[in-house]
């Protein structure tokens, strides 16, 4: 599945949960949201993205290790 599409969605989730100021807890929340609503192939495709991808928000980089 198109990585850009998934990166955009993951970044958007992170941005909307930004009210949680603790980065660890926030990454947990984003990961929890993704696990709750994303189909496995979407998660796999996101996990296949290089963590150094310039479009990934720092929070989503932290999320990658939690999925």
């Amino acid at each position: 599945m198109n990585a850009e599409y998934l990166i955009k969605m993951a970044n958007q989730i992170a941005l909307n949960l930004a009210y949680e100021q603790d980065p660890e807890r926030r990454a947990d929340m984003v990961a929890g949201h993704i696990r709750k609503f994303w189909e496995p192939r979407m998660i796999e495709a996101l996990l296949a993205v290089d963590p150094a991808h310039p479009d990934l928000s720092p929070c989503v980089v932290a999320v990658l290790t939690r999925l």
Partner: peptide, 11 residues
């Protein structure tokens, strides 16, 4: 595991 939502199905 959750399935695909409509926009995800299109993708």
């Amino acid at each position: 595991q959750p399935g695909l939502r409509i926009p995800n199905m299109f993708e």
